[in-house]
Amino acid sequence: MESPEQVFNGIVKEYSERLYWHVRRMVGSHEDADDLLQDIFLKIWTALPSFRGEAQLYTWVWRIATNESLNWLRREKLRAALHFASADDLVVRRIEADPYFNGTAAQRELAKAVARLPEKQRQVFIMRWWDELSYEQISAITGTSVGALKASYHIAQEKLKLNLSESEVSK
């Protein structure tokens, strides 16, 4: 039988890279993603004794990561509100200043437009478009029905099309 440390090390090996890319898309910068990922794995470690195996390990790990990412965004929103600023603008500024970005201008505009989406739509879009998870997988992780997820994704796509065409026009 594996010790808790061995199970945890297995989770780190299996999921750390994949979760990093998800968290990085959610928060917009490498440094914040690095900090948040450490918090997520600390949470996984402390919650490991309570994992009963009713959910798949994959779903359980992703659920912790997505919940922590949303909590991070909410704390950022509060931090920004207390400084009379917009949290979305902070994430957008981080994307603009990100030294670990080597995509095209269009890819940067897309990342910025995604950062301006409401948090749930942002989450669904990132999980579908970049993480390439199925609706069924996202549903198991978030507890949202497949129909509601499809609707969210569709609305997010429409908003992105509108925002990207507006930013193209304003250039």
């Binding site: 780190v12 090996k13 750390s16 890279e17 990093y20 890319w21 990085r24 898309r25 490498h30 690095d34 990922l37 990100d98 670990y100 970005f101 080597n102 995509g103 095209t104 890819q107 940067r108 990342a111 478009w129 970049w130 390439e132």
Partner: peptide
């Protein structure tokens, strides 16, 4: 979809 963001060299080994 991919390859627009990257990480410092050796980051994932050090992260693990």
């Amino acid at each position: 979809r991919k390859n627009d963001i990257f990480v410092p060299e050796g980051y994932f080994q050090q992260l693990e």
